[in-house]
Design a protein around this nucleic acid. Structure first.
Ligand SMILES: [Zn+2]
Ligand SMILES: [Zn+2]
Ligand SMILES: [Zn+2]
Ligand SMILES: [Zn+2]
Lengths: 144, 144
DNA sequence: TTGATGTTGAGAATCGTTATCAAAAGATAC
DNA sequence: GTATCTTTTGATAACGATTCTCAACATCAA
């Protein structure tokens, strides 16, 4: 799911900030924006190492920060204290259903809930910024 | 807000588990179940130290775990990675509005949202267990 | 008193993440 | 090409919240 557009967007961001594109950054971009989602830094590290042995954790974290700053990637602070990273799909917000047995992440959006959340903000005099909603349960596969 | 009932409930839990009541555990119970809510372990530590100098972090964390197990206290894993502890008010669930400027916590419940969350679980084949919803914004005082 | 068991607090360990810094890589000027 | 400047890299140390370890201590029943 790594499009030429994403690659270009990252390039543009780097240029704009006076930074450079590199082999390592390319590898990390590919892993993070590829199909598998909600990867931890460690999972990304292991994946990148297959193709670029010798990569360091520092480079992983630095690049992840750049990707987030460029708006291509979102960091999820999960309950287990480990951050996961996922492709930021064109500013379309979503929340998560998480299986407590197998760790599966399912992305969900409920426009009604979003509206009610805004109402909660307003009713309490808050200026809305963002929110996080995680629904923990047991998925179909794990129920069996 | 520390009721005799809570104290008794903790005593009962300890007895049932073959554990003992102690001065330190009493101090922590009082701090956590008192008015001020959503305290970090460090805040609890500093509060307890006023009345019981020499208390150790290990005792704070151990007692907090006991309080959670006894169902008297709930641990909130916050976005900043620091856990906060609050009085578990008779199994009445609530979510949080959090001010990103001053850190104020406002407790909210929206029965409609709760229903829609259940629907999300069901629609995706999940067995519901629990959820977490945090709304981040800027509170009335901080907006001015 | 003695033994058994539970509690405590100092300090070490854990672990995800961040900071440090010298070496390497790239770009630019000459 | 070489010199110079800037950025990137990865090994390693540091960080900070939490947990573990363990010897000293408290409690209580026999
Ligand atoms: Zn599952
Ligand atoms: Zn997602
Ligand atoms: Zn505020
Ligand atoms: Zn609360």
């Amino acid at each position: 799911m790594l499009t030429e557009k994403d690659k270009q967007a990252f390039q543009d961001y780097l240029t704009q900030e006076g930074l450079k594109f590199s082999e390592q950054r390319m590898q990390i971009l590919e892993i993070v924006l590829q199909g598998v989602k909600h990867l931890t830094a460690n999972e990304i590290y292991k994946n990148v190492q297959k193709r670029h042995p010798g990569i360091g954790y520092a480079t992983i974290y630095r690049t992840l920060r750049l990707l987030c700053e460029a708006g291509l990637c979102v960091e999820l602070k999960c309950e287990d204290g480990i951050c996961r990273y996922e492709h930021a799909a064109d500013d379309v917000h979503h929340d998560h259903l998480i299986c407590t047995k197998c760790g599966r992440f399912v992305e969900v959006v409920d426009p009604q809930i979003e509206k009610l959340q805004d109402k909660l903000f307003k009713d309490n005099g808050f200026l809305p910024q963002r929110h996080r909603m995680e629904l923990y349960g047991i998925c179909r596969q794990c129920k069996k």
